[in-house]
Design a protein around this nucleic acid. Sequence first.
RNA 1: GGUCUCGUGGUGUAGCGGCCUAACAUGCGGCCCUGUCAAGGCCGAGAUCGCGGGUUCGAAUCCCGUCGGGACCGCCA
Length: 587
Amino acid sequence: MYRTHLCGELRASHAGQTVTLAGWVNRRRDHGGVAFFDLRDRAGIVQVTINPDLPTEMLDLVADVRNEWVLQIEGVAQKRPEGMENPKMETGEVEVIARNVIVLNPSRTPPFMVNTDNDLPDENMRLKYRYIDLRRERLTRNMVLRHKIVKYMRDYLDEKGFIEIETPIMFKATPEGARDYLVPSRIYPGQFYALPQSPQQLKQLLMVAGMDRYFQIARCFRDEDLRGDRQPEFTQLDLEMSFVQRDDVLDLVEGLFTAMLPEVAPHKKLFSSPWPKFSYKEVLERFGTDKPDLRFGMELIDVTDILAKSEFKVFQSALEAGGVIKCIVAPKSAEMSRKELDALTEVAKSFGAKGMPYLAVTAEGVKGSAAKFFKEEELAALKEKTGTGVGDLIVFASDARAIANKTLGGLRLWFRDKLDLADKNMMAFAWVVDFPFFAFNEETQTWESEHHPFTMPKMEDLPKFDTDPGAVLSDAYDMVCNGYETASGSIRIHRRDIQMKMFQLLGLSDEDIQKKFGHMLEAFEYGAPPHGGMAPGIDRLVMLLADEPNIREVIAFPKNQNGRDVMADAPSEVEPKQLKELHIKFS
RNA sequence: GGUCUCGUGGUGUAGCGGCCUAACAUGCGGCCCUGUCAAGGCCGAGAUCGCGGGUUCGAAUCCCGUCGGGACCGCCA
């Protein structure tokens, strides 16, 4: 038996017990006579005291011990002497007086320190030695939190009558969505499996199969460029329910997360219960994005009416082109430096704006790039409508509605970060519903499906399909939290005729439809129940609950932003023999 | 595909035309030290400044290219 207790679980109540611990040396403090090791395991850190009355051979052995060596310590747990407690440690009231020290394995000097989170090494260094980096208390905590969240989900859904079913990782290419990761077939030259972008089709087929309520902690794969909140492989709580309407799904998921929050992250506050529900249109107008951060105000304000007759050319030309004038009011930002404003203008341009007019409201009057073009009555009306006071900065966007919204939505988040407007312990869950079914592609001048082709349009909008496609809404919904899309779902099509029409609208030929989706259409002919579901992203959720800035910190072995596994150095070249077996040749 | 930004001892940073024979912290090695907990004190080793080219009397520093990282835009049905 290697150990009787975990390092991190020892408390004053263990005093007097003989214990055996095993773990890593987190830190050593050698005072010449007495010496201390902080011994670490997954549960935490405890102080081990080496007294000079131990046998000389053991003291010699102990003198060589360094950080990250793996030790087994046999000793007596003891309440620390009066005044020697360390309130910063959970185990700070206790220490283990060593009687025997066994080196289970020495360690090379690690490439970086894991006993401090100050001055973190370069991330690729951390990723290369991920097995060391994960020893960090912070990352260990993230892994444990992730486990708790997934366990809670499993238990909750089991309680609600769901069953967990695994679906294949090797499936069929669905090139209509993101790019697929392909797996060449050895047995069928020139043919490929694809890794699933989500188990979408499979879970729908499980509903056809009568599984009624399914879930899966599902790995999904998408071959698109990475971001701080996007990995090429990621995990979703994939769930699907039969005989449900939209709100049945939303209520289930809202119930799950609302119940889970205090259990897994008690320091987090729920912004609102029940969760707010916005239409896609409303959320875009008010927050400039379909994944709003509700933890702070600074909503977008439409001032087109007030400035309709503005003499400012920038506004005039935007309005002539059929655009709008909107603004946000940043508190206490009137004194921003020219340099900061220039930087901010660049941010605005990155969202498609041509410039960024602004007004700084100061005690001496309004200042700013466009100040002289504003008439007195316009200023008065502006202040009235926006509630602007002295010290505030009004930032405008005048452009096509979509660009104005997007720009101000982006700037709103910029101010959130700069002015620290969002409570980090708040979880502002909300629903976004009533998404448009089609999006107009300016480039190709055609209507394109906004979702995957299995999403159900609102039945009452069916007649508008051919006459007014822009007005058709879908039975799709997103769960958002703190500015992230944390889940996405829909009521699905379960009728063959509607599904067929969808594929045709997407521009697929009858032959393509049969080849790619014949199995779905056929399944719908054999008694498909009405069904719908949702897929909350686990990585993003854990990231938010762990207060991490990106999802790599909550994934055990993530890829870097360029999709490389820098630890194993993948992707990598393979043996010519392997290529030959797969019938692959490079030109 | 694009924009911005960063590559300096093991690690994290400073230096941004000559004071650089490259500084600081930490880690590492040695010595001292019986109660520390980011232990402390003294001594020491360790970087031709990502790579290639150019400008210059002189380049870590300026320019061009290239490789690698990060943030964002496009993309993510």
